[in-house]
Design a binder for these strands. Sequence first.
DNA 1: ATGGTTGCTTAGCAA
Length: 257
Amino acid sequence: MKVATWNLNSIRARQERLLSWLSLQTPDVVCLQETKVTDEQFPFEAMNEQGYHAAVHGQKTYNGVAILSREPIDDVRVGLSDSIDDPQARCISAQIQGIRFISVYVPNGHIVESDKYNYKRDWLERLFPYLERTRQPDTPLLISGDFNIAPDVEDVAEPDVWRDSVLFNPDMTKVMMRLSDWGLEDVVRKHNSGPELYSWWDYRQLAFPRNKGLRIDHIFATSELASLSISASVDRDERKGAKPSDHAPVVAEFNWP
DNA sequence: ATGGTTGCTTAGCAA
């Protein structure tokens, strides 16, 4: 099974690239972020014609997450399903081929100590009880998406520029360690030990040609599933050419089912 | 050189 996560930065702006990429890579499941469309505007027909079912949780203008799958999608749940009234569409989960998939778009946070950063921290606090409620015995869990967190110094091309920013600071590193403590393994890092593996490059300052990126898009899986992973990579080529997203797709393959 | 780009929506926000 080939699984991918990709922050599209608008599915309308990226629809042609998405369709070409799907036909080239033929992933089984794709977690999408920043679709930036309401559910009514989601291009279900184009995805279906490409051979994919789609589960969506969108909103107007901002955010928006989705899961595409070649096999049928069951038991779709949207949001973090807690007592907080949160209008931002940042989480969707679904059951596919015996795996619980979660697609997340973690808040960016803007600037440390801003309201947006407090929202990011609160959102991440809410994620752990959500995982606890979502976890089921004997069902592997895979959570992937744009976490807006570079876990470690080797995930940042220019640590001195990004240190103590919203994307890379000790508190955010702790969150990633809590995911690990909870039982989730970073499948991409497992298969790529070296530096210079990034998933996002700023549109500005020629960041991509200079490879000044950060690894902030991740695929985590519970240990049994992670142990069945064969390979993982960033599809850097998808960041090239005309009208790319600022994120590249991240892909992992599993010996499943 | 105190900016730089993109997308959505139309002047300003979000990333």
